[in-house]
Structure formats: C-alpha cells, structure tokens
Design a protein around this nucleic acid. Sequence first.
DNA 1: CGGTGTGTTGATTACCGTCAATATTAGTGG
DNA 2: CCACTAATATTGACGGTAATCAACACACCG
Lengths: 252, 252
Amino acid sequence: MKQLPISGPSLEPTRGACSKCALREVFLPPDSSASEARRLDSLVLERRQIRRGEALFQKGSPFAAVHAVRSGSFKTCIKTWSIGEQITGFQMAGELLGLDGIGDDVHRCDAVALEDSEVCIIPYGALEEMSRESAAFQRQFHRVMSREIVRSHEAMLLLGGLRASDRVAAFLSGLMQRQQALGLSPSSLVLSMSRQEIGTYLGLKLETVSRCFSRFHDAGVLDVQHRHIRILQPEALRQAGASLTDRFQGSS
Amino acid sequence: MKQLPISGPSLEPTRGACSKCALREVFLPPDSSASEARRLDSLVLERRQIRRGEALFQKGSPFAAVHAVRSGSFKTCIKTWSIGEQITGFQMAGELLGLDGIGDDVHRCDAVALEDSEVCIIPYGALEEMSRESAAFQRQFHRVMSREIVRSHEAMLLLGGLRASDRVAAFLSGLMQRQQALGLSPSSLVLSMSRQEIGTYLGLKLETVSRCFSRFHDAGVLDVQHRHIRILQPEALRQAGASLTDRFQGSS
DNA sequence: CGGTGTGTTGATTACCGTCAATATTAGTGG
DNA sequence: CCACTAATATTGACGGTAATCAACACACCG
C-alpha cells in the first residue's frame, strides 16, 4: 500500500470570503443577515491546499477543527487490519469533513483528497463559541450533524438491502443530485474516484462495479467512458436505485 | 404487515431523577458537579412508557424532542416501498433516540419498542438552550452526536466488508460490550430482537442468521437457546468480528 | 515508446438467498 | 392446567449473484 503523508508545505491558498463560497450553503440559513455572514467569515482563519492522494487528517490524529471542502473532493475511510478499507463517504465542494472527531477528540477515519483540493479550516473551539452566541447558528450546526447521521443511515440501507446494480444506480443518482445542487450539469459528470473506491464504498469488488457500468451502458442508460459519465436515462437510474429517493412509508 | 400505532394512553411512568439513571452516562462528563446534575434533571419534564411493538415516533412525524431509553430497548428502521425495511440501529438503556430528526425537523426513521420500555423525553428546545448556557454540556451533546456518526460508519464497515458469520460475531460482540457498560453480565444475554430483525440490521436473511448461530453453537463458541445466548469463547467471537474492535491502521 | 496504474471482460467457484418442510415457543382460551 | 394456534426458529436442497482468478485493453506518465 501507498503511504498517505499528511500534506507537506502548503500550496498557495486562494482568497475570497467563505460566506460567499459553498460554506454558506452549509452554515447559513436561507434568510440570514449580513452580520451573520461576517461572523461566519470570522470563523475561518485559514485555508489549506491538499494534493491528490494526500491525507487531510488520519485516524488517530488529534481533532481540532472541522473542514469544509472549498474545491475538489475527498474520501473518508476506515482502514482495518483484517478487511483493508471501508470508505464511509465521498465529500465534494460545500460539504463538511471531520465531524467524527468530536466524539473523542481524535479522528476516527482518514480523509484523503481524490484530486487537488482546498479546504476551509474551522477551528472547533470557535464553532462551539459561535454556537453558544447565536441560536440560529447553533441550530444550523446541529442540522449539519444530524444530516450526516441520516446520510450514513441511508448508506446502510444501500449496503444492506440492494443488489449490486441497484447500489451503483443509487450511487450515481446521489452524485448527480449533489452536482445539481452545486449548479453543475445534472447529466454529465466526471468521477474523481476509481472503480476500486466506488466498490469499497458500496461493499462490492471493482470488477462488479465495472460490470454494472457496462451493463448500464449496453442498456443505453449511461454513456460510460472511463471516468466520464453521461446519464442518458435519469429515470431508469432513479428507478433502479429507488430506495434512497423514495419517501414512502411501507404500510399495510 | 402489522400496524405500528403511535403508542396509546400512557402507562404509569416511573419516578426518580434522570441524573441518576442511565442518562447520566450520556450527558454528564465524568467530573461533573452537582449543579450540573440538577440542570440535567430540569431538562426532562416527562417520561413515557411504550409497549412492545409500539412506535415511539415514525418517519415523517414532527421532531420536537430527543428521547433517552430508560429501560427496555428499541429498533430504529427505515421502511421503503421497494426493499421492505432496513434497521439502522438497536438502542438499549442509556442510549439516545431521535437525533435524525434535527436535520429537517421531521423524523427520518421509525423507532419501535422491542419490549415494554420507558423513555425520558428531552425537549429539543431545552437542550439547545442548555447547550448555549453550558459549554461543558454543549460539548457533551456534540460528543453524543459525533459518536452516533462514528457508530453508523462502523455499521457500514460491517455491512460492506464482512462475511455473514463475521457480521453476526461482530454484532454479538457489540451487544456484549454494551451490556457490560451497563454493569450487566458480559457473558450471558437475552436478545430482545428476532432473527429477522438481526438479519435486517446486518443485511442478511433470517435463515442465514440462524445458520450462523447454529454454527457458532456447534463450534462451542456460543450456547444458543432461542433468544438466550451465553458466550463461551469471547475471544473467538472478537476474532471473528475483529473489524469493529481493532484500532490499528493498515499501513505498509 | 515502454511501463504502470486503471479498467474491462471472461470462466469458475463460493457464499448466501430462496423455497420448503419441520420444530419449538409463546400466547390464548377452553 | 392443558390444548390449540400463530409466531418464531431451525434445517435441508437448490439456484443465483457476486467474488475470485486470470487475461487483456487502454490511458496517462515519465
């Protein structure tokens, strides 16, 4: 296996207020004031560039800050002696990293950049303080944590209840939705992760993932060219991976 | 499928301060003062008895409070049209229910009592308020949420990376540890959930769960008699389900 | 232009799911 | 208290899905 060095000397961080970057989506309620935006900016004292393959933090390293992905993308994974690794999530721009560390002041997983990326560093102490001062902000932070819980419960559903092809379909649907939320093309996407990594996330082997892509391709649902994916029949995908998007109660 | 009515007219709630019940373990740091304990008690205005099979809350119902299991046990599950149900966790005495609801002010899963149970009702508003007043309490609450995130990440590991028998072993190891944390016998336990439910949690069919129990029984690792389990070789179990308990980094 | 990492495809196998029959328990009412 | 029923659990035979092993194709990089 490769080493995953904690990233070396920083590249040049970009400039610009965080209240205007994706962080706004995470922390500011839709109807927030200018003063709240200023406060939000004051949280982020520092940014950091991480190169592809480097670790933002690793399991066991002390927890001090939450990170917001400003650009690029990450995977979070648990490595074990017996299994290898389980990927617990992929994070793209505007999403948070490191909430797992609050529990014991120590990170419980690795966070590795899938491409050259930049994160905003939000010191946890400052976050706590601001939560105490502003009820609105507190609420928003709790929402973020709660949604992460729901998200991983949905991942459990995916792992526990779906056949291979449906997992892949649900995975792609999810990526699509997140891209769309960022204002990017909803039908065309470039995967920043390998088949191996998708498999590790979905509880499948890379060959199985590859076969699923091929089958969707043959069926005319997707146009697959390595990591470039175009969704030709979004409806067919949603149907295959219906479990995560349907909000029905199975009564009767 | 059975109906899961929101529980009817309450049974008689028990008396006694919450700072002395299992809730203490959850919310009070080890070195907490008496005044903090009093404050904690002030959070819980009400208790509620839930009968076996009844729902404490259901997906879609408005979120207003977090619940702490005082006695008995629960399952939380997501029901979908296509899959049936995925159990996202089992909660026993001293554990929290309902954190999923904070995100959108609506519960995202059902919580159903596995046996006659009692919960403490902690209004979320009061919890927010106390979090703003006491940094120590705030920290503790964040810890609880964070640990729930880590817990479900570990569940993903289990679902994605382990063979059937190892899932069952890890599941039993986990139950054992939690029993032990409550000061109960670490070697003997009575399952409050059916094989079906264990299977639904572990992403397996009930027959597979049953077979695993039988194989462990034959191997002399467990003494299985329906829902009464005695662990004869804890070491063998831990070894089979090593993934969740090992804290190593897979380097080199 | 090789070489390495990544992805695709095929053949075979192992594990778990499915279907089905039986056993055991708990819960109910005589 | 016992008989009866429904729910839960065990066990077996069989089949399907995904893992494994292996060969090959393709891009990206020096």
